[in-house]
């Protein structure tokens, strides 16, 4: 178990290194930094800007800057945001929290709805409930978040209950159901499709397995069969999907947070790109990637815990087959 976690963390760190290096190179290639605007300022002399560059270390070669950044990160120092004029971590961490709150709400909402509907649909195969589930999945999967966001915004704008945007931390208006529900709903809908399909199909195939038939033959009640036996089998892919869907939720949050004015990482990334604030953007990328990888890791650990027999097997085959790719269908 520990060995697995260790190797996973190691892998994760490696992926993070590559991702951040890539982003760093890309942003450097994109040209321009936060001081470019100063350059255009007729009142600052060339030397003044260059001395500022020197102070912020922007005159060093790319590799040196990257290594410096890495060393800083290792020390818990993500650099200085040019746009906000404060340490990057003091901006990124509260926003990460906001996005995580949103993601957690959305995912639990989706899981709640999906497990009820999915279980019922699996049990009542071919019935109207099953068929309407089919329709729900189809529509939930083919409603893009950007479309849904505006539809929900239109409804929220007309009701006096919902508020748009999250008040800064420490305010009384912070993260009430009124502000969190609209964006969470939008993030949740594609997840409902994802989870519902997985739960229904997983449970259904589990129900047809031999041991379930045996359990039934033993005269156990149907609910016990489902909850104690079949669900365990159906849980594996669900756990994986749950862990991996975090990435999709984070990507989706860029648009959703922009539409709803939710003060999270997604909105922050748009600000960072627009102001060419590279340290801030790197902070956002790092936070996003770490959160996504952590989600994957947690999924792996849960999977491991749910399947004692997996411990005997090789690492590479831990993951069960998934019916769906959680990240791909909804890039936004």
């Amino acid at each position: 178990m520990l060995k697995l976690i260790f190797s996973r963390v190691l892998q994760g760190v490696f992926v993070l290194l590559i991702i951040t290096a890539l982003c760093f190179a890309l942003l450097a290639a994109a040209g321009g930094d936060a001081l470019t605007a100063l350059h255009d300022d007729p009142h600052l002399s060339e030397e003044a800007v260059n001395s500022l560059r020197h102070i912020y270390g922007l005159d060093k070669p790319l590799t040196v800057r990257y290594v410096r950044w890495l060393v800083g990160v290792a020390r818990g120092d993500l650099g200085h945001s040019f746009f906000y004029q404060v340490a990057v971590e003091s901006i990124v961490l509260p926003r990460l929290l906001n996005t995580l709150v949103l993601a957690a709400t959305a995912m639990s909402l989706a899981l709640f709805v999906a497990s009820i509907l999915g279980t019922l649909a699996a049990v009542r195969e071919g019935k109207w409930l099953d068929r309407s589930c089919e329709m729900i999945i189809l529509f939930a999967a083919s409603t893009p978040r950007i479309v849904l966001a505006f539809a929900v915004l239109a409804v929220a704008a007309r009701s006096s209950f919902f508020a748009i945007g999250v008040a800064p931390t420490g305010s009384t208006a912070n993260k009430t159901p009124a502000t969190i529900l609209p964006p969470a709903l939008v993030l949740a809908v594609p997840l409902v499709a994802l989870f519902l399909a997985q739960i229904r199909d997983g449970l259904r195939s589990a129900l047809s397995r031999e041991y379930v038939q045996v359990a039934r033959a033993k005269g156990l009640s149907e609910s016990v069969v489902i909850l104690r036996h079949a669900s365990r089998d159906a849980l594996n892919p669900l756990i994986t999907i749950f862990g991996y869907s975090l990435g999709g939720v984070f990507s989706g949050s860029v648009i959703v947070e922009t539409v709803f004015g939710w003060d999270g990482l997604g909105q922050l990334s748009v600000v960072a790109v627009r102001s060419r604030d590279i340290p801030l953007l790197m902070g956002v990328v790092l936070a996003t990637a770490t959160a996504v990888l952590a989600g994957n890791l947690i999924a792996d650990i849960l999977l491991f815990a749910n399947n004692p027999e997996l411990r005997q097997r090789r690492r590479g085959e831990v993951k069960p087959e998934l019916a769906v790719n959680p990240n791909f269908t909804q890039p936004l």
Binding site: L153, I164, S171, G261
Partner: peptide, 18 residues
């Protein structure tokens, strides 16, 4: 002094007295 970049948020928060 609250930083509210999004004009929609500013408007609804104005309406909701925050």
């Amino acid at each position: 002094i609250d930083v509210v970049g999004d004009p929609n948020s500013a408007f609804t928060r104005l309406e909701q007295n925050t």
